[in-house]
Design a protein around this nucleic acid. Structure first.
Length: 613
RNA sequence: UGGGCUAUGGUGUAAUGGUAGCACAAGAGGUUUUGGUUCUCUUAGUCUUGGUUCGAACCCAGGUAGUCCAACCA
């Protein structure tokens, strides 16, 4: 009985973690829909780089397939040859792999152009589609408004044969773009605007990067997506909330396609697509669309169109600029795939249009990097510290732990293979902010009369002796009063690892590097690109109020301090051996990543995120 | 002002007619050779008005607020 209870509680526990889409999938499987099969797809348009919003879609598309033993295909939604390019395909594939997902196969909407064409001809023959020869302005005017019904096109009831002839002509290359389109005959009075005789095909007379010159007329999204899902065998077609109004049309076209399969499948050559679809009619009910809320992050602009402006105008240095919300930008910034996935898991999938706090992403990042990052010492704003009583020219080698979070079963830090050598000498650099002449009681770092520990080294102290002018003897200053050098003495009995090192002191432990044994490096500090919480809305409003567009509407909200380059930092030698994209923690400062442009001659580090507090 | 969708602490999310829980953020304290980590604890919530019900965050109706839809884009 107890066992039974345990099993039950585990089951309910698991159920609790399912989001509303996963619950629907689970229910469909339990009911044996589509033969209990699950298939999803991730369908980017290859016209730009993937961003963290896509990561949310990727996580659920691939995640559901993984969770329910199905497959997820990567499908390039390439129905618009004027915007798409092969250059993006590779980047998309690379980013998905980096996130840790694996697709069943890579498909292209353009793979289905012939099927779509045949289906469209069938629709014409059924009297469900017609060629309209009006201008786009006329068509728009007839569409009505959300509050007023539209009116029928004069071409709506033209003979089927005429539509069929003109449709074929649309693909001949002899028809000017805009001259005619193929429309579905549905309902010009529908409250759903997408039902007012939607456009199925338009003439572009343009070469497609995959199909070349074979096609001159190309299908629209609404006449492609559900059909591609159906032709591929997708069961659950997951997309974002703005496609909710499309769902009815999606379902309609899928149902037409099933009719098409039933109608023409018998006569079709056996083994052909149509014949296969016909034979599957009873076991494959067809795809259904499910929608979730897309990712909105505060202080972040997500839309591809706007990101393109930022790169073109040189506001950022390319798509992989560490300030960009692109997957490649975030990767270069130093986020781990797991950090992104954990964040996505935390914000969840709902139908509420939420604005997520970027702090949650940063928290997820710290949480993951804490277990992953190699601890090193870097001094980003150096001031010289001389240990007066340390022998000139002496150098000591000490051991520093790479990652204290690497623990054995008892919770103790594993030391074996988890340390690296550091060098201690008479002249060191410490952070300027770690010394205060008048720090007060709460300032637990260095100052006259104060004692601190140098990480992995010795306890040191500054004397509070003053000269005849009342100046502290431990501080050297330039003519402007800036501190140029600090003097301290070390307690030789307190070397890290020795018994004397256990001495408790009031001061904190400071990081440091040896002047002679550290390497100058460049550290890039990042902040949000935007000064307002919701740049998308702010830009939109500014565009409206001032009649400007693009970059001019963005400028007022750009953070001038989103990138601050510091070329005065020093880092311990060990860090110079780290390859690009290594996860590091500069102790007491934050998480940093080796930039993709970093070389041993010119070390560059990107600040991923600061330590908490 | 037509239709669709949505509303739970500061933020995000759970509770699927039966004890409003979790994470982040914020605050207090302990531990600590990172003012990190970790461990305690605290603060704070069902948009509104009705209805159905023994019982409503959940179902229904109205209101309010937000959001999406009138591209030969996806």
């Amino acid at each position: 009985m107890e066992e039974l209870n345990n099993v039950q509680s585990i089951n309910t526990e698991e159920k609790k973690t399912l989001n509303f889409i996963e619950q629907k999938v689970e229910k469909d499987m339990a009911e044996g829909l589509n033969g209990g099969r699950v298939q999803t797809r991730f369908p980017p348009e290859p016209n730009g780089y993937l961003h963290i919003g896509h990561a949310k879609a990727i996580a659920i598309d691939f995640g559901i397939a993984e969770k329910f033993g199905g497959v997820c295909n990567l499908r390039m939604d390439d129905t618009n040859p004027q915007k798409e390019d092969t250059e993006y395909v590779k980047a998309i594939e690379r980013d998905i792999k980096w996130l840790g997902f694996q697709w069943g196969k890579v498909c292209y909407a353009s793979d289905y152009f012939q099927d779509l064409w045949d289906f469209a001809e069938w629709c014409i023959l059924q009297g469900r589609a017609y060629v309209d020869e009006q201008t786009s302005e006329e068509i728009a005017a007839q569409k009505g408004t959300p509050t007023e019904p539209g009116t029928n096109s004069p071409y709506r009831d033209r003979p089927v044969e005429e539509s069929l002839r003109l449709f074929r002509e649309m693909n001949s290359g002899n028809v000017e773009p805009g001259r005619m389109i193929l429309r579905a005959k549905i309902d010009m009075a529908s409250p759903n605007m997408h039902f007012r005789d939607p456009i199925m095909y338009r003439v572009l007379n343009m070469e497609h990067w995959r199909t070349g010159n074979k096609w001159n007329a190309y299908p629209m999204y609404d006449f492609t997506h559900g059909q591609s899902d159906y032709l591929e065998g997708v069961t659950h077609s997951i997309c974002t909330l703005e496609f909710v109004p499309h769902r009815e049309l999606y379902d309609l076209f899928v149902s037409w396609m099933r009719e098409w399969a039933a109608d023409c499948g018998e006569k079709a050559e056996s083994g052909s697509k149509l014949s296969t679809l016909n034979s599957q009619l009873s076991t494959y009910q067809g795809p259904r669309q499910f929608e979730f809320n897309k990712l909105n992050l505060n202080y972040t602009l997500m839309s591809k169109r706007n990101l393109l402006v930022l790169t073109k105008e040189g506001v950022v240095n390319g798509w992989d600029d560490p300030r960009m919300p692109t997957i490649c930008g975030i990767r270069r910034r130093g986020y781990s795939p797991q950090a992104i996935l954990n964040f996505i898991d935390k914000i969840g999938y709902t139908t509420f249009d939420a604005l997520n706090d970027i702090k949650l992403l940063e928290a997820a990042c710290r949480e993951d990097l804490n277990t992953r990052a190699i601890r090193v010492s870097a001094v980003v704003d150096p001031v010289k510290l001389i240990i007066d009583n340390y022998p000139d020219g002496q150098v000591e080698e000490m051991q520093a732990v790479n990652n204290p979070e690497l623990r054995d079963a008892d919770g103790n830090t594993i030391m074996e293979g988890n340390t690296h050598t550091i060098h201690f000498s008479k002249e060191l650099y410490i952070e300027r902010e770690d010394f205060m002449e008048e720090g007060g009681k709460k300032f637990l770092r260095l100052g006259p009369g104060k004692e601190v520990r140098l990480k992995n080294a010795y306890i040191i102290a500054c004397s509070n002796e003053q000269d005849e002018n009342g100046n502290y003897k431990c501080i050297e200053k330039d003519s402007n009063g800036n501190i140029t050098c600090i003097h301290a003495t070390y307690d030789a009995d307190t070397k890290s690892g020795m018994p004397g090192a256990d001495r408790k002191i009031k001061g904190k432990t400071l990081h440091w590097v040896s002047c002679q044994h550290s390497i100058p490096c460049e550290v890039r500090n990042y902040a949000c690109l935007w000064t307002c919480e919701n740049p998308r809305d702010a830009i939109k409003q500014y565009e409206k109020e001032n009649g400007v567009r693009g970059i001019d509407a963005m400028r007022p909200f750009l953070n001038p301090e989103s990138l601050i380059i510091n070329k005065n930092a020093f880092i311990e030698k060990f860090a110079a051996t780290m390859p690009p994209l290594s996860y590091l923690q500069f102790q007491r400062i934050g998480y940093f990543n080796v930039d993709t442009t970093s070389t041993p001659e010119h070390l560059v580090f990107n600040k991923t995120v600061g330590l908490k507090g």
